[in-house]
Simulated scan of single mutants.
Amino acid sequence: MILTKAFELIYVKGYQTTSIDDIIATTKVTKGAFYYHFKNKDEMGLAILQEILKPALANSFIQPLQLQANPLDAIFDLVHALLMENEFLKVEYGCPAANFTHEMTPWNADFRQVLDEITQEWETAMVAAIERGKEMGFIRKDVSAKQVTLFVMSGYWGIRNFGKLENSKSIYLPYLKELRNYLNNLA
């Protein structure tokens, strides 16, 4: 409960601007109870990454790539769902993993390591899906799975930032249209 409520608060306010007192007030636990579970805020933040973001990534970012036969459709459907349909991911707050990456990787090696693991899991799953698509004839043989993956991932994180600036999902629509065009050119 502490991790879930703290994560929701951090997603809205940001990690560095959320104090332990904010977390305690939101979760309604005592300081003693907080410190019973975590030595400090960074230990709690790392637990959020391990116990909330990693499983969410597996369910929302990786599993969809493994369920559809055509990875081009799977990639588009995944990004579309994350941008337009996901109830938790709010346009005004961006991508939680990207937010943690921007806020914490310059200052904390442990955060950098876990966030890199999370990113690598998504990257590995997308590369594998694209390679499967090449073997099954959905994607041209000359396509670099790694390049496509980095392009799609960076586009997703980038458009999330534009969404935060605009505070509107309408900014996602031209991106999604161009993503569809790009993916169709890989067939």
Score class of each variant (00 low, 15 high):
Ala69Asp: 09
Asn99Glu: 02
Tyr172Cys: 09
Gly14Pro: 06
Leu65Ala: 07
Pro64Glu: 03
Asn59Ala: 15
Gly163Val: 04
Ala98Phe: 03
Tyr175His: 09
Phe100Asp: 00
Leu46Arg: 14
Thr27Phe: 11
Lys134Ile: 00
Asp42Val: 10
Leu83Met: 08
Met84Gln: 11
Leu173Thr: 06
Lys169Phe: 01
Val29Lys: 14
Met153Thr: 09
Ala74Asn: 04
Ala58Ser: 11
Leu186Ala: 09
Leu49Asp: 02
Leu67Gln: 14
Pro174Cys: 12
Val152Met: 12
Ser19Asp: 01
Tyr172Pro: 11
Ala145Pro: 12
Tyr11Thr: 03
Gln68Cys: 07
Pro96Phe: 01
Tyr172Asn: 07
Tyr36Gln: 14
Met1Gln: 13
Asp110Gln: 13
Thr18Phe: 00
Phe7Leu: 03
Ala125Pro: 08
Met84Lys: 15
Val114Lys: 15
Val127Gly: 10
Lys134Thr: 02
Asn167Tyr: 03
Thr124Val: 08
Ala128Tyr: 00
Ala187Pro: 10
Leu46Asn: 12
Met104Gln: 08
Lys13Leu: 03
Leu72Thr: 03
Asp110Glu: 12
Trp157His: 12
Ala33Thr: 09
Met126Tyr: 00
Leu78Trp: 00
Lys90Val: 10
Ala47Phe: 01
Trp157Arg: 11
Asn167Lys: 13
Leu89Cys: 06
Met126Cys: 10
Leu179Gln: 06
Leu65Gly: 06
Tyr182Asp: 12
Glu103Cys: 06
Gln68Ala: 13
Lys28Asp: 13
Arg160Leu: 01
Tyr172Ala: 09
Asn161Ala: 05
Thr18Pro: 02
His37Arg: 10
Asn70Thr: 06
His80Asp: 12
Lys28Trp: 00
Leu83Pro: 04
Ile2Leu: 15
